[in-house]
Computed example of a mutant assay.
Amino acid sequence: MKNPFKKHDSSGKLLAGLALGAAFAGAIVYLYIKRKADIDAAAAELKEHAQDYLKEKRKTAKKIKTDVNELADVIHHS
């Protein structure tokens, strides 16, 4: 029969669990930082070309100049 008053030492399991948790946390942080750098690089490249479409569109776009009184007609004809 086990002695209910005897203290069991589980500090080894606790330390192993903490070390394993710290290793997993470190791996997750490393992968996050590595992936974030890749995403930032791709976003910077896309940001450079984001205005290209608008520059081409400006050449053919016309401004519609209407008065406030003509807005109702513009809305109903569209």
Score class of each variant (00 low, 15 high):
1 M>P: 00
1 M>D: 04
1 M>W: 04
2 K>F: 00
6 K>Q: 02
6 K>M: 05
8 H>R: 10
11 S>I: 12
11 S>P: 06
13 K>W: 12
14 L>P: 01
14 L>I: 15
14 L>K: 09
15 L>W: 14
17 G>T: 04
17 G>D: 08
19 A>M: 01
20 L>F: 04
23 A>F: 05
23 A>E: 15
24 F>E: 11
24 F>K: 02
26 G>W: 02
26 G>Q: 14
28 I>D: 12
29 V>P: 02
31 L>P: 05
32 Y>E: 09
32 Y>W: 11
34 K>Y: 10
36 K>P: 04
36 K>N: 06
37 A>Q: 15
37 A>N: 15
37 A>R: 15
39 I>R: 04
39 I>Q: 06
41 A>N: 09
41 A>C: 12
42 A>H: 07
43 A>I: 15
45 E>C: 14
46 L>F: 14
47 K>G: 04
47 K>F: 00
48 E>A: 05
48 E>F: 00
48 E>G: 01
49 H>E: 03
50 A>D: 00
51 Q>Y: 02
51 Q>G: 06
51 Q>W: 03
54 L>W: 10
55 K>H: 10
56 E>C: 04
57 K>V: 04
58 R>S: 09
59 K>V: 13
59 K>E: 09
59 K>S: 14
59 K>Y: 07
61 A>Q: 08
63 K>E: 11
64 I>M: 00
65 K>D: 12
65 K>S: 15
66 T>I: 12
68 V>E: 14
68 V>I: 14
69 N>C: 09
69 N>I: 06
70 E>S: 11
74 V>I: 03
76 H>A: 08
76 H>E: 11
